[in-house]
């Protein structure tokens, strides 16, 4: 199982890299005209925040590297077991897939698939649960379409 130490170290490296990238982008913020000389430049605040964020990420990384944790009691592993990891990550994929389905095939396709795909990701097979979820999907859709007059495309 993925442990907290490894996961947090990867996360910290990603954060520091992202901070470097965004700080580099901020160098390109230019203000033209009269406003250019007024007050602090636009890049100051984002770069300040990125600096603070990267500094804190470095401290967190150092603590995980040297002490194995960043203070406080934390679970040894990110997921309790393989089943929990599979269900959580599958649901993440389903959420992304549903967004794409809505974008490319329309709301109806997404609404019909969201329930069954979610239940599949969570390993639920009971027909009654499928029926309840489909009923709730139809109910929510009706509220928005007929109650609030939202054009769901």
């Amino acid at each position: 199982m993925l442990n907290q130490r490894t996961a947090n170290l990867v996360f910290v490296v990603l954060i520091i890299s992202a901070c470097g990238y965004f700080a580099y982008l901020a160098q390109g913020f230019t203000t033209s005209g009269l406003l250019a000389s007024s007050g602090l430049p636009s890049k100051f605040f984002p770069q300040l925040m990125l600096g603070i964020t990267a500094f804190c990420a470095a401290i967190v990384g150092y603590r995980y590297l040297v002490h194995g944790n960043a203070g406080g009691e934390e679970d040894e592993s990110v997921f309790a077991d393989g089943k929990e990891a599979r269900q959580g990550l599958s649901m993440l994929v389903v959420a992304g897939a549903c967004y794409s389905i809505w974008l490319f095939f329309g709301f109806l396709a997404m609404a019909v698939l969201l329930g069954p795909l979610s239940l599949l990701a969570m390993g639920v097979r009971a027909p009654s649960t499928h029926f309840i979820v489909l009923f709730l999907t139809a109910f929510i859709t009706m509220i928005f379409v007929f109650g609030l007059d939202v054009d769901l495309v």
Binding site: F22, T31, P46, I52, R63
Partner: peptide
Amino acid sequence: SLPKGLLMGGLGIFLTTWGLDELNGT
């Protein structure tokens, strides 16, 4: 963890700097 809290606070504030600069339109 204080560094973790600060990291999140900094990240939250940084994300609000996206978009047009309210003071000079950059």
